[in-house]
């Protein structure tokens, strides 16, 4: 019996690793290519490990392109939209979790429905409004839009976290005569922080990768990394190695953050329906 289980475990392990590496392979291949020379990058048959490893492509992307500017834009846009969104979402989620009324459920579902509005349905007016307000190709414009599109997700995520905070603790603190400010500082904040941190993480990831508004509302100077990479689709010449290095630089920070947020991702993107 134990032997059969052991063998099953080995078979499953082998199968799982093969499939996982297959799924991961495009990223691995991009990583490898980023260390090749352009000649080796397009070599047929392809070179898997035995080539002259070089950091030249990274140096080139770092120095000769606007990578750093776009990186800064990505950081400002994703963090900015998330932080402002949290400032709006935390009180809202808090109110609904701790002072629910008859309309709370309706409000939550309505918020969810705004997220389902296809972006393309409001592309024209947003573009024209932005044009008029001088927000086209501006970071603040994108901060605003991404904050609005992610706000429902933030409220929902926070709501599902806040609901797990036992109300008895809150009531006990009130009985002990804690002022609302003390209640916030000593009772609520410590218990709410993990949920807030998770929400922050997931929404930074979503904003970082958002590729409808960031591509449609920016031009060269204020585009985040999504737009920077899109500029590599221009057909003049194929630079696989440099594209790979730029791609790795664009995704590496967020993929690592993503690894840390797997669980929150499930909760956040299913609006709490799967935990």
């Amino acid at each position: 019996m134990a032997g059969r289980h052991g063998r099953n475990k080995l078979v499953f392990t082998a199968l799982a690793w093969v499939l996982a590496l297959l799924v991961f392979f495009p990223l691995l291949w991009t990583l490898l290519t980023s260390f090749k020379t352009e000649g080796e990058a397009v070599a047929i048959p392809p070179k898997f490990l035995f080539f002259d490893w070089t950091l030249e492509n990274y140096a080139e992307v770092w120095e000769r392109t606007d990578y750093l500017r776009h990186l800064r834009n990505s950081i400002i846009i994703s963090l900015g939209s998330t932080l402002i969104g949290l400032a709006v979402a935390i009180p809202a989620a808090w109110a609904m979790a701790f002072s629910p009324t008859r309309s709370t459920r309706t409000v939550l579902l309505w918020m969810l429905s705004t997220r389902m509005l296809p972006a393309v349905g409001v592309l024209v007016p947003v573009y024209l409004l932005f044009k008029q307000a001088g927000l086209l190709d501006s970071r603040s414009g994108l901060v605003l839009i991404l904050m609005l599109t992610n706000l429902p997700i933030m409220v929902w995520m926070l709501y599902t976290y806040f609901r797990e905070i036992p109300r008895e603790i809150l009531e006990a603190a009130r009985m002990d005569g804690a002022t609302p400010l003390r209640e916030l500082a000593y009772v609520l904040a410590p218990m709410a922080l993990p949920g807030i941190a998770s929400t922050l993480l997931l929404n930074v990831i979503l904003a970082w990768n958002e590729s409808f508004w960031t591509l449609n509302l920016t031009a060269a100077s204020t585009g985040p990394l999504t737009a920077f990479i899109a500029s590599f689709s221009a057909p003049e010449g194929l630079f696989y190695a440099r594209l790979s290095a730029a791609s790795m630089l664009a995704i590496a920070p967020i993929v690592v953050l993503g690894w840390l947020s797997q669980k929150q991702l499930v909760r956040g993107l299913t609006f709490g329906a799967v935990k």
Binding site: A20, F24, L27, I229, S233, V255
Partner: peptide, 20 residues
């Protein structure tokens, strides 16, 4: 390994697949 592709921005995944 399995979960990683989800965090790759669409422009990167599309260009990697398209070219490489």
């Amino acid at each position: 390994l399995v979960v990683s592709p989800f965090f790759v921005m669409p422009t990167v995944s599309a260009l990697v697949w398209k070219n490489m």
